[in-house]
Nucleic acid binder design. Sequence first.
DNA 1: ATAAAAATGTACTGCGCGGTACAAACGAGG
DNA 2: CCTCGTTTGTACCGCGCAGTACATTTTTAT
Lengths: 201, 201
Amino acid sequence: MRTEPSTAKGRATVQRVIDAACELFARQGVRATTLDQIGTRSGTGRGQLYLYFAGKSDLVAAVVAQQVERVLDAQRPLLETVSTAADVRAWCTAAEQWYGADDPVRCPIGSLVHELGEQDDAARAALADGFGRWRAVLAAAMDRVRQHDELAADLDPDAAAGALLAAYQGGVLLAGATGDLAALRTALAAFQATALVERSR
Amino acid sequence: MRTEPSTAKGRATVQRVIDAACELFARQGVRATTLDQIGTRSGTGRGQLYLYFAGKSDLVAAVVAQQVERVLDAQRPLLETVSTAADVRAWCTAAEQWYGADDPVRCPIGSLVHELGEQDDAARAALADGFGRWRAVLAAAMDRVRQHDELAADLDPDAAAGALLAAYQGGVLLAGATGDLAALRTALAAFQATALVERSR
DNA sequence: ATAAAAATGTACTGCGCGGTACAAACGAGG
DNA sequence: CCTCGTTTGTACCGCGCAGTACATTTTTAT
């Protein structure tokens, strides 16, 4: 960020720009999105971009950070209440339904991994941090499942969180490639079938 | 492919071009690779590209197909002999070691998913087909494991293959994002821990 | 040996997009 | 109501790269 806006109006504009960029990046990818599109979409010209951001990579870094917040915020309410195997199943079901029939199957965070330039250090760091935090939230949830004794014995919560996140990302990747959400369902179903132990109660 | 080369020399050139493109795409991505680089790397100018290929997307499609063959060929010998849980573990270990310490962690196939243009239909189809075939080979292997009764009871071989592929792709994605292969190890380890049942014999 | 075809190298063109400069409009103190 | 800082809109520049044209060399066939 080159210049922090000093008025409310300026801050609102910055937010609109980031929001527009988030949407466009998620839908059509980073490199396929031009600054013109972002400027138009956000209702501002391209001029503002260079007032508030040092350039495209700077904007990308800001978007990555924002996107991470969005994804985590969206999941937190659901994830923070997870404490049983059934809750995990519910999260998996919800995850499958994030993708509608018509919009492209691409995780707003995961898809960024291969789209960031090699030298976009700030963005890459933000991305890695985002995955770390996502995993931490999942791990906390898995830990509660473990306390209910509904996590497979040979998995520790941290490993389970990593595995679930990988299954999700891999599933989304395959689903995006084949255009069929079944791949995601399969990946998550396998995790549920093997990692969770339903206790009768 | 615009014109099939009719001489051995021409075919050799085409192959060199595709090989060079494979390497460059795998290392630095599709969009970051220019036709100049491919022309130079393959020892031919950019002129040839347009003699044999209709344009970049055409070349990309050819590369995708080739890349799929490479990956499958590399794994076939290992995968076709898989018939026990221990063999699956061996494959997982091998998979972790495909990535050296210095080269970037990106699956030559998986990384393409988000790099292909929205309208590169031929390439996308080749990619989807590649995943399908990869999964089929894995499923055949899982079927043999099942026959040894070393696959978890609540997984059918097809689902196990999908889950393993997703775990691998997701693991590579996370490892690439964080720069730490541990993510891949965790994902594969979780699959092994929960999907495989070691029988004493 | 020679003509036709195929392969190779080079130089040029156009354009999309990131980046910059600068002019116009707005808005908050004095 | 004037003034200065901030915000907004526009017009321009240059570069990198995909795509094209064409001249030159090499290979194949008769």
